[in-house]
């Protein structure tokens, strides 16, 4: 690997290569984050309901 600037330049194709990787990262990473968030929310909501029912009886 030569200089970092050389690496970033991607042989003159930087404006195509990096957006391709960026979109993949944004879309797949975003999906991971959204899925984790919804998972935690659903888990917390269920726990709250189960605790409420236990108290209610």
């Amino acid at each position: 690997m030569r200089s970092f600037a050389h690496f970033l330049a991607m042989g003159g194709f930087a404006s195509f290569v990096w957006p391709a990787y960026g979109v993949a990262l944004a879309v797949l990473g975003g999906l991971v984050l959204l899925s984790l968030r919804r998972y935690r929310l659903s888990r917390r909501a269920l726990e709250r309901l189960e605790n409420r029912d236990r108290r209610g009886r």
Partner: peptide
């Protein structure tokens, strides 16, 4: 593997959400 992990996570989420919906319907 990323697909498999996300699939399981999202399936668990859907199961929790369904269970919560059922509990809400049968709540006092």
């Amino acid at each position: 593997l990323l697909f498999a992990a996300l699939l399981l996570l999202r399936m668990r989420t859907l199961l929790f959400e369904r269970r919560a919906r059922a509990l809400r319907l049968h709540s006092p």
